[in-house]
Amino acid sequence: MRTLSEIDMTSKRACKAMGFPWGIAEEVGKNMRILEMFGLPGIRNLNQYFKNYKNQHFQIISLIAKSNVSPKIPYCPIVLGTNFLDQISILEELNEIKFNNVAYPLIFLPFVSRASEIIGKKIHLKLDENNFLLCFNNYIYSNNSISNIIDNCKNLDIKFIENQDSFTENEWNELYQLSENTFLEETDSLKQTAAGAGLSDND
């Protein structure tokens, strides 16, 4: 089995060899490490993308908007991802972002996962029929088990999820009441003697 350190280093060097700058190659190295750690086929997709890279045109995007369409030429997932990461503080305010026609979208995914960590919000990513929940770059949940190459995604949707509880206040209270059964009701004597702090702050 290849180690994450080897995956990082080899992906970085391969990316540089394809003509990307060192700084972007570093990003790709880290991203492949993330994908493979989460059990997603990063190396397989990256390898295939690089095989096509020299012969096929890929759309370069600079400033990302709410809706981004490139009907004929698919977006390069590395340039798209780098710019997504770099512009995340502005993009977050858009709440939802759509891309049409993205090449090898799994290569784009770890950029979004890292963006989730930077802004401290979960991000929902939809690659056609595949749904991913990206949680602060700590977890990636998916509705499908993906082990193959995904060479294109017609519709890629991103939704920033506001930080809010997944439960009702009532459910919380019920659980909290249960947890209270581990607390000791203080007697007058305990109130006088068991606390470390003084009884009055007026001294």
Binding site: P21, W22, G23, I24, E26, E27, L63, I88, S89
Partner: peptide, 17 residues
């Protein structure tokens, strides 16, 4: 913003980091 500076200057991304 550095995010925008990098759009045209990613050849220096490693050194910005």
């Amino acid at each position: 913003l550095i995010g925008k500076f990098l759009i045209e200057n990613n050849d220096l991304r490693h050194i910005v980091r």
